[in-house]
Nucleic acid binder design. Structure first.
Lengths: 113, 113
DNA sequence: GGATAAATGAACCATATGGTTAATTCTGAA
DNA sequence: TTCAGAATTAACCATATGGTTCATTTATCC
C-alpha cells in the first residue's frame, strides 16, 4: 500500500502548478502528444517533460508510444484522492457529521472492493 | 482581483503538505491555539508558525489574539477554489458537458454576486 | 517591575522545484 | 544506412520550501 498521505502529497503537489493544471485541462478535451501540449507554453520541451513526469507519478496522466510521438491522456480516477479529501474536509467543518458517516462508509466499501 | 491562478497555486500548494492537512483537519473539529496545534507533531514551534502562515495566506485559516495565545480557526470558504477547479475538471473529462454548462453558469452567477 | 509563557521573527541550512542548454535515445522515412 | 523529428536524459542554475536554533515581542502573574 502506497501510503495515502504520500498520494495526497503528490496529487495536491501536482495541482499546485498552473502549467500542470493547464496541461490537465487540455487533456480533458482529449489525448495529445507531448509536442502539442508544449505548444501553448513559452517553455522548453524538457520543462514540459518534467511536468508530465510529475503528473504521471501523481497518477493523473499516462503516456504511451505512438509511432515516434507519445500520446498523453488523463487517468480517470487520478483526482479521486484529492476530491475525497476535500469532500471529507468540507463536510467535517460544515458540521454535517451525519453525511460524513455516510461518506466514510461509502469510502470504506469502495476501498474494500 | 488577485488572479485566480495564483489562488489555486497557493491553495493546492498549502494542501500538498501532510502536516498542513493534519492541521486543517484538526481545526475542522474546532478552534485551537498554536500550541495545541503543534503538540501532536515532533517539530519546533517556529516550524508550525510557518505552516500556519502558509495556510493563512492561502485563505484557509485565520488567527486572532486571545490573551497571550492565538486562536486559529478554519475559513469556511477557503477550499472553494480548489473544489470548484476539481469539479470543473472531472465534469469535463467525464464528458458531462451538459452538467458543466450548468456548473459554469452557477459559478459565474456566484462570482458576479 | 520582573519572571515566565505563547507565539513570532531572523538567520541559517539542506533539499526540492522549475527552469535552462546540450547530448542522447528511439522511431519513421529517403 | 543514414538522416531527421519527437521526446527524454544529464548537468547545471536560481529560487522556494521545510526544517533548525537563538533572539524578540506580547501578555499574564507574583
Amino acid at each position: 500500500m502506497v501510503n495515502s498521505e504520500e498520494v495526497l502529497d503528490r496529487t495536491f503537489g501536482a495541482l499546485s502548478d498552473r502549467t500542470r493544471r493547464a496541461i490537465l485541462r487540455r487533456l480533458s478535451a482529449g489525448e495529445a502528444t507531448v509536442g502539442e501540449l508544449a505548444a501553448p507554453f513559452d517553455m522548453s520541451m524538457p520543462a514540459i517533460t518534467k511536468h508530465l513526469n510529475v503528473l504521471e507519478t501523481a497518477g493523473l496522466i499516462q503516456r504511451q508510444r505512438d509511432g515516434r510521438m507519445k500520446r498523453c491522456s488523463v487517468r480517470q480516477d487520478g483526482l479521486k484522492p484529492a476530491e475525497d479529501w476535500l469532500t471529507g474536509q468540507t463536510m467535517f467543518w460544515n458540521g454535517q457529521l451525519d453525511q460524513l458517516e455516510t461518506f466514510l462508509a461509502r469510502e470504506k466499501a469502495a476501498s474494500d472492493a
